[in-house]
């Protein structure tokens, strides 16, 4: 069983093919926001170099976020259309799970933290278990103070991973003693995506393309402004006249 993994939740585009032999091929590039330009040629290139026909793929795995909205939708849209065209099922995985999984051999609590821009972070906590990691805090959207407060409340030894953790390294470090994972682990990758998806695929825990749900964790600005306005504020809706 071959799985194609597509991941575009941060500034990186990552595509991998794998199966029971592990990851057979991985393509990653992180050069500005060129997700749409890169993802289709990357799949084409990877298949050609790994000598795999798309028709041999039996599951499409995709990072459903949280992440940068426009970028993550490129991967989701490409993945859903591929699954639809090839008539194969899909497996959705959170970007935060993908960040935490490579740190499964630690004995600390893992804080996976993605930069959400606008002064916010997407984060979740995990603890290592035999063969993987287990979520102990569901994905959140908050400011760095919220992250620090949540970490302090747990009181465990912590290792932080992700571009959001690196961005706020000094603020986090000032408040609590923790380790930071290597820079090269700071973006979710399609390699752990296909590894994790393979285990699920063996249990046939997959869905149809139209059932894949993106994990945004944040309302569109207009909806946020709209609800504050409904409560009496005079904020602009941020709407765009067509």
């Amino acid at each position: 069983m071959l799985i194609l993994g597509i991941e575009t939740a941060t500034e990186q585009v990552s595509v991998a093919i794998g199966g029971h032999e592990g990851v057979l091929g991985l393509f990653e590039v992180c050069r500005g926001r060129r997700h749409a330009e890169t993802v289709t040629p990357a799949i084409q290139f990877l298949c050609r170099q790994a000598d795999i026909e798309l028709a041999e793929i039996s599951v499409i795995a995709v990072d459903v976020g949280p992440g940068l909205f426009t970028g993550m939708r490129v991967g989701l849209s490409a993945a859903k259309a591929l699954a639809q065209a090839l008539r194969i099922p899909m497996i959705g995985m959170s970007s935060l799970d993908l960040l935490a999984f490579p740190l499964r051999h630690t004995d600390r609590t893992i804080a996976a933290v993605i930069d959400a821009r606008k002064g916010e972070l997407f984060y979740a906590f995990y603890r290592p278990v035999p063969g993987g990691v287990q979520r102990v805090l569901e994905p959140q959207c908050g400011r760095v103070d919220d992250l620090i407060a949540d970490l302090m409340a747990r009181g465990d030894d912590v290792v932080c991973v992700g571009d959001g953790a690196l961005r706020h390294r000094d603020e986090i470090h000032a408040e609590l003693r923790c380790e930071f994972a290597e820079q090269f682990l700071s973006r979710p990758s399609a390699a752990p995506l296909v590894q994790l998806a393979h285990a699920r695929a063996l249990r046939e825990e997959w869905v149809n393309p139209w059932e894949i749900q993106p994990m945004y964790l944040r309302l569109p600005d207009a909806q946020i402004n709209w609800s504050t306005r409904a409560q009496g504020s005079t904020d602009n809706t941020g709407g765009l006249a067509r």
Binding site: G238, G239, A241
Partner: peptide, 8 residues
């Protein structure tokens, strides 16, 4: 919203 909201 009185217009198209891009993210929505």
């Amino acid at each position: 919203y009185g217009g198209v909201v891009p993210e929505i």
